[in-house]
Each structure stands twice: as structure tokens, then as C-alpha cells.
Amino acid sequence: MFEARLAQGALLKKVVEAIKDLIEDANFDCNSSGFSLQAMDSSHVSLVALSLRADGFEHYRCDRNVSMGMKLASLSKILKCANGDDAITMKSEDNGDTITFMFESPEQERLSEFDLKLMDIDSEHLGIPDNEYDATVKLPAAEFQRIVKDLSTIGDTVEISVTKDAVKFGTTGDIGNANIMCRQNKAADKPDESTEIDINEAVSLTFALRYLNSFAKATPLSTHAVLKLSKELPILVEYHIPEVGRLAFYLAPKIED
């Protein structure tokens, strides 16, 4: 059987809220090392990769590898019934056709159980190469969210250019154009506000803003978003979930035909 208890149930709520508009349904894969998901959006332009480590759970048991297909909209409906401070336990019997979500309030005076029907989902599993990236930018997650939101009001795509000291986000649209530059800033007294750039080579790539806006829904999970870029490769946008794992998004670049 599979059984996993997350004391900070809010994390699971936030993860599902971050991905439910991007992917319709997905297989959640559980094995002894943890709980993970890999899924492409419906237009196959981006990829979501979630991994929650077994040791990030308060209790974790997985007797055999299971893949549980769920509709994200349904999962979201159920998780919305959990309070932000509830602990969430997921349970499923081997070969079962449902997964049970149990919500416990902090004082354990309220206990609720919701069963979600599992579904068979055919999904293509992609092999993500372990790339060395040309540039890595770690910036406050809220800042990244604001940048992609603001630029979306002007254009549809963003050119992200990283140099040694700064990262520049630029867009062009019918009404004009916009550029936002963030300088490296390793403020030791305010680590949550730091912007750090690690670069092997200057890089400049163009991406559809619609997807980056969708990725930014993961903002509540982490203080920082980490962007990893290499010439003519998908961007990796990572949100580290402290002590538990990470939620990562890959987006194919726009490339001149």
C-alpha cells in the first residue's frame, strides 16, 4: 500500500494550485524514494516535474511502485476542502481504484476523508538530460511573477538576456515595448530579496509569456525562483520547496525558423 503524511498540508494545496491550469490530468508516481509527477501541458510546449522526497513527509510508506492517474481539477476541488494548517495524509491500496485524502486539524478535533477516483492515463515520459546551464539566475519568486505579469500587458513573448551582473527581460507589442533589468544583489541582511547570477556564458533566449505566467503560480511555494538557461535549450524554472523537494517547469524556447 501507499501512505504518506504531510504535516504541512498547505504545501500540497499550493503545488496543485500551481499546476492545475497547465495540465489537465497526470500520473503521480510513488516509489520508496518519494512522490513525483512529470507531465506536459496540452500543447506539449512545456513540462512540469514535481518531486517530493520520502524524507520530506512525516510518515511515508510505499510497498510497491504505483502510478496514480488523477484529474487535476478534481484533485484541486478536494484539496480546497483542507484548511491551510491541516495535515494531509494520502492513502491508496495496491491496485486500488481510489486515493483517500485525510485532513487533520492541528488539535485533531476535526478529521475528514475524501476519496478521489483514479483514472488510467496514457502519458509519455520524457528523458530530461542533466544539463550544465550557461546561466543561472536566482531571483525573488514574487519579483519574477511581477515581471512576467507586467510584460504580458505589453507583449506575448519575452527575451531573457543574462550577463555577468544583470538579467534583462524585454518584450515588444502593438502599443510599444518594455524592458526590466534586475541587477545582481546579494543582500546578506535580506536573503529573501537577493538576486544571484551565476554565468558561464552570456545567453539570450525568447519564450512565450503565457507559460511563464502559469509557472509563476508556484510563487507561494518558495522565496526564490531559479531560472536556468542555455543557448537554444528549454528554460528551467525551479521552485525549491524547503525540506521537501521541488517543483520545476521546462519551457521550449521560440526559435527563429
Binding site: M40, L126, G127, T206, L233, P234, E256
Partner: peptide, 14 residues
């Protein structure tokens, strides 16, 4: 113009 490629064209089936 700039084309949008699929993510699968970068990451092969694994």
C-alpha cells in the same frame, strides 16, 4: 518569424 517548438523535440522519450 519565431517558431514555437515542442518540449518533446528537446527531451527524448525516456
Amino acid at each position: 518569424g519565431s517558431g514555437q517548438r515542442s518540449i518533446a523535440s528537446f527531451f527524448g522519450a525516456g
